[in-house]
């Protein structure tokens, strides 16, 4: 069930552009699927009137916590990132559909994240691992500053890195990493900037691999009520907040 809940910030880590926020609820968490997101209320200020959609980076039912990774791109993400320990954030969750789990326990899965799009990939990897799969991560950024929480990713699966400037891992885009030549995959999950996801979708099509992308269309309600967030698909305009954010590339027009 969807819920409006106040979460208290209990731990925070900051990088130049990104912030890790560990948030705790007083109540038991609702069931959360990997790939789902939250709508965070910023404040009542004029330029942060609507909520901001943010992916769920990690979940801990026992401690009633969720984790967000937020990249500063404007007033809303700045204010969310500036939340102080013990302050609360009002959150609507869980929203959207989430990733599909492979039926075959031996499926070779690869999780491709770019920029802040790495956020939902961690929880997905964790869930896949709990199901007995061996997730492989290919994570990309413009430079090494974009690639945060790498230890956590490594604890769940193998991690391969690319940066545009070569400051970490192989230089280039995620789709150019040598791992694509060395390993064969049955399923690709991806989240990141649209040009990156388009390149990943092409790679999947060329190699006939099943692929799911997580879209980040602009949203107002996040509940499927306003029809602002639509993606044009083979089925026409569908709501990314409700029938997405995760979509199979076979449904997309790109």
């Amino acid at each position: 069930m969807k819920k409006i809940t106040d979460f208290r910030l209990i731990e925070k880590k900051e990088w130049a552009k990104s912030t890790y926020l560990l948030l705790q609820s007083d109540e038991p968490l609702e069931d959360i699927k990997a790939g789902q997101f939250v709508q965070v209320k910023v404040d009542d200020a004029a330029n942060t009137y609507l909520r901001r959609p943010i992916s769920i980076h990690d979940v801990d039912y026992q401690n009633r916590t969720i984790t967000l990774l937020v990249q500063r791109v404007g007033e809303g993400t700045n204010k969310i990132s500036d939340t102080e320990i013990n302050d609360t954030l009002n959150i609507i969750y869980p929203l959207g559909n989430g990733f599909t789990m492979p039926e075959d326990k031996d499926a070779k899965v690869v999780l491709v994240g770019g920029g802040i799009g790495i956020a939902p990939m961690y929880y997905l990897g964790k869930v896949l691992k709990e199901k007995g799969l061996e997730p492989v991560f290919v994570l990309g950024g413009r430079s090494k500053e974009d690639l945060i929480m790498l230890d956590k990713f490594s604890s769940v699966g193998e991690v391969y890195i690319t940066t545009n400037d070569g400051s970490l891992g192989e230089q280039g885009f995620v789709t150019q990493h040598s791992v694509w030549k060395e390993k064969k995959f049955d399923m690709i999950y991806t989240c990141g900037p649209k040009p990156m996801m388009m390149a990943v979708a092409n790679l999947a099509r060329e190699n006939d691999i099943c692929c799911e992308v997580s879209l980040e269309n602009l949203m107002a309600c996040g509940l499927g009520a306003c029809l602002c967030c639509v993606e044009n698909t083979i089925e026409g305009h569908v709501c990314v907040c409700k029938e997405g954010p995760v979509m199979n590339i076979n449904k997309l027009l790109w």
Binding site: A46, A220, C229, H237
Partner: peptide, 9 residues
């Protein structure tokens, strides 16, 4: 798309 834009308040 795009069908929405946030504006002051």
């Amino acid at each position: 798309y795009p069908r929405m834009a946030e504006t002051p308040s």
